Amino acid sequence: MTATDGAAAGKRGPGGDLAVLLVRPLATGGLAAHVDHELRLLRAAGLTVHESTVQIPARPHPATDLRTVRTLRREARAHRPDAVHAHGLRAGALAALALPGRGRLVVTLHNRTLGSRGVRLIGRALLRIIARRADTILCVSPDLLEDARAAGAADVRYAVVPAPEHPAAGEGDPDPVAGALPVSEETPVLPEADPARLDVLVLARLAPQKGLDTVLDAAALLTSGRAGGAVRIRIAGEGPLRAPLESRIRQERLPVELLGHRSDVPALLAAADLVVSAAVWEGQPVALQEALRAGRAIVATDAGGTRWVTGDAAQLVPVGDAAALAAAVQRHRDPRVRHAAEQASRLRAAQLPTEQDLKRQLVDVLAGADRPG
């Protein structure tokens, strides 16, 4: 802890001597990175943070969920936290059931409930449980905020989700939660840039939510007849869809490369002409925040909180519309269009939330220092 952090903790004001129980689901990607980021910032601010030992899967299971509720009650008795912060719909609902009226409860909602009608009904029921019990609900996108208010929550706010800051040169290895993707020793050296080719970068987990089939559909449209010139699309990330994506890329001879996990995201961004996101839904995409900070031109689907992050700096297209995505990429072949977009990205980057904004919000809501009224 730094001298500044120690002084802050000794003030015994908001955040000083505050004990927090942190409850997270079994998750990877942006949600896990955000929770890791929170943990680091709160501990740096002098708070005592206990991580719950519960394992909360994405799907309900009565016996497992009952054990989770019992474990949370035991942990609350053992640690006596001033506040509990649960991440995700199921973690939030189970924490609400485990700790009725016992201290302050803050829940951050990260994802929409997608799927069958039955799945959505369960999601609404869980949200009502959270709305009745939680003191504050933080939402990563406008649609989640509207849902929470409709469920009757009294204190609903936008969650601050900044891209963690990369250390300056000479300060050691990149932070593993900084949006960087670990790279394997087998990662190939990328070929030299071709000035006649449009280099497109996608930073995404290889999962259904990221809309990568739409990226491949757009790649097929862009290369049909080669009327618009060469294009190369590189996708940095790993996930369960690698095999089917590889198969389709090979069979259709698409100009798409799967780079796997990467730790050199800043270098990849610097080498790209254009950053593309075809997500079906997003909260506050960290990858696009990094693209804005790198001053890259952006084309993205108008999904979830994407518009809230990019503002006017990105060209947004409808979700699942490969033709619109291809047309937007094609438009950015013009260097003048890319230059204007890069300037817009730099201006928007200056308006993005920072780590200090996140730390301030967390300390305030966990301490209840800025309760409405």
Rank of each mutant, 00 (worst) to 15 (best):
L316D: 08
G229Q: 12
R336G: 14
R73S: 10
A9D: 13
V106M: 10
V299A: 03
D213V: 04
L288D: 08
R120N: 09
D334H: 03
R124P: 01
D194F: 08
L316M: 13
E185G: 14
A86T: 04
V265H: 11
A219G: 03
V276H: 01
R232K: 13
V119Q: 13
A314Q: 08
R43S: 11
A32P: 03
A98M: 07
H34C: 06
R338C: 05
L212D: 06
V363I: 14
P164L: 06
V140M: 10
A349D: 02
V119C: 05
L138F: 05
H79V: 14
G6K: 13
A220T: 02
R226V: 03
D213P: 04
V309H: 05
E257V: 15
D302T: 10
V54H: 04
P191F: 04
E282R: 04
V299M: 05
T28A: 14
P176R: 09
A63G: 09
L72W: 09
R360T: 15
P174M: 01
P266H: 11
A196K: 12
D175W: 05
L245P: 14
R242C: 00
D273Q: 13
L347S: 10
M1G: 15
G123I: 04
E51K: 01
L138R: 10
T223Y: 05
S52T: 10
R24G: 10
R360H: 14
R40Y: 08
A271C: 06
L26K: 11
L99I: 09
D135G: 13
Q209V: 12
T187C: 13
A219D: 07
A303F: 13
L22W: 00
R234Q: 15
V20D: 01
A314D: 07
L21N: 11
T223N: 06
A3Q: 14
L222R: 00
A168E: 14
R346H: 11
R262E: 11
V329H: 01
S345Y: 04
R133T: 12
A83S: 12
A230P: 15
E282P: 03
A271G: 13
R120A: 13
R205F: 00
L221D: 05
Y158F: 08
E165P: 01
A279C: 09
D143M: 03
T354W: 10
G237H: 02
V256M: 05
V140N: 06
P353F: 07
E51V: 12
R133M: 03
D217K: 01
A45K: 05
D199A: 12
E246S: 15
V280E: 15
I130S: 01
H261A: 15
H34G: 03
L181S: 14
